[in-house]
């Protein structure tokens, strides 16, 4: 029975990494031990079977699928980058507005600290509230007169509300769908112009077409 070292030699012989002197020693061993020779034969059968295995070729459409997936990933990344840019812009804006906010707070605290200034501020606020209330009162009086003159107007107004809401929602959806289609069409046009590689073209056209199909389905739903 082969020991561990000889078993390793058998394996290394199969991988053609066994030094010549060890190979010679292994040969001698196999000639004298039928059991070891049988063991080596079993391993060699495996080795031969694996060496004879064919290489599987990639499906014809694999490259196109890869490039389509890649184009999608790249556009998603670009979307992520624009969100990051928006967040950065907002952060900068907030940082710029901070001194203004601090100045406003300082003014407010000063006003509250001085009784005369506080009285003035309260009087101004009071006057503003009075004028707002008077304006609302005037509007209500006009509305009351209008309803007295045309009693059917409230019912008509109530009927218009759901109709106008539905119209608004449909218009917004249509606008969004048109915008997406316009972007997809422009991407499709860019594709043929920007890339000379047929795989990239096919992948990008496929991505853009699937986008257009999606938009068409959305429009149908509408």
């Amino acid at each position: 029975m082969a020991n561990e070292r000889q078993k390793n030699w058998m394996q290394e012989a199969l991988d053609e990494t066994l030094p010549p002197e060890s190979l010679h020693e292994l040969r001698a061993r196999l000639e004298t031990s039928p059991e070891d020779a049988a063991q080596y034969e079993r391993l060699r059968r495996v080795d031969r079977l694996l060496r004879s295995a064919p290489m599987e070729r990639a499906p014809a459409a694999l490259a196109v699928s890869i490039m389509a997936r890649l184009a999608e990933a790249v556009s998603q990344r670009a979307g992520g980058r624009s969100s990051a840019a928006l967040a950065l812009t907002l952060a900068v804006l907030a940082a710029l507005l901070l001194p203004l906010l601090i100045a406003f707070c300082w003014l407010m605290l000063n006003t509250i600290g001085s009784p005369a200034a506080l009285g003035q501020a309260l009087a101004g606020l009071n006057a503003l509230l009075v004028s707002v209330i008077a304006a609302v009162d005037g509007l209500l009086a006009s509305a009351q007169r209008f309803v007295e003159a045309y009693p059917e107007a409230p019912a008509a107004a109530l009927a218009i509300i759901p109709i106008s809401l539905t119209w608004l929602v449909r218009t917004a959806r249509k606008h969004r769908s048109n915008e997406k289609q316009r972007r997809a069409e422009s991407r499709l046009a860019d594709t043929t112009a920007s890339s000379e590689n047929p795989t990239v073209q096919a992948a990008q056209v496929r991505a853009a077409e699937s986008c257009l199909d999606g938009r068409a389905a959305e429009r149908d739903d509408l």
Binding site: I66, V74, N197, T199
Partner: peptide
Amino acid sequence: DQDAFAELVY
């Protein structure tokens, strides 16, 4: 350059 990557894919 996506064309170059397509060459690598091929």
